[in-house]
Amino acid sequence: MKDIAQGYMTEDGRQIGAVLMELKNITLKFGGVQAITNASFDIREGEIRAIIGPNGAGKSSMLNVINGFYHPQEGEVWFHGKKRPSMPPSEIARQGIARTFQNIALFHGMTTVENVMTGRQLMMKKNFFWQLLRVGPALEEETVHRRKCEEIIDFLEIQAIRKTPVGSLPYGLQKRVELARALAMEPKLLLLDEPMAGMNVEEKEDMSRFILDVNDQYGTTIALIEHDMSVVMDLADRVVVLDYGKMLADGTPDEVQKNQAVIDAYLGVEN
């Protein structure tokens, strides 16, 4: 493994910075079930970090720990160089962590643009009384954020479905709207839970391109879970491999691919 104490340079020449988030010895249990056992890894600024592993490996649970939906029984989460106390997920979102979901979690009663606007909620500050008047500063604020959302909508090429209720959109587009919503939050850390699940090759290519563009243009740090190995190997700078809640390996895609424990976990061990 490369020496990455001070950040590193990726193969395509992007500079990866200091540690943004560090997970130390995370253990998560549900009743008697051990979902994650003593997992530790870090996520660096500007990096695309993949978490892979077979079904039930604890990948989604890991994302849920990162954004505070689950509270691990043991271990610490460090964010921006500070230990993060246990807090509700809404507060963690306020610190700049956004995510998408494995089973799309859009607001089905709203249109695309409204869904994207929900990503701006935290940045809208005008109080209740301005809101009910909806003139002057409140309307100005709404307009400013609307403009920002339209930029993101342009960026992800979903202009045409701007005013369509999201419930009626095809699956691939819903995934894209969800990404748009997460981007609208201008997160420091973006978590993507299987962004390409259930997509065809073409859609996967589109989505990969968007993920790379997001990382490139906005400098967003991304942690993603994905099953498609070729996608992971193309996108990710570093990969964590989980199996039955335990860490199997952590390193660059090449290193991980050559790791014997990983090969065993994926292909089975011959006795």
């Binding site: 306020r94 859009l106 929900t118 919503r181």
Partner: peptide, 17 residues
């Protein structure tokens, strides 16, 4: 919008802040 977020999917709303 925050009302409708809670209505449509409260967990996602919370994870958005």
């Amino acid at each position: 919008r925050s009302w409708m977020m809670i209505r449509d999917m409260d967990i996602a709303a919370e994870l958005i802040g």
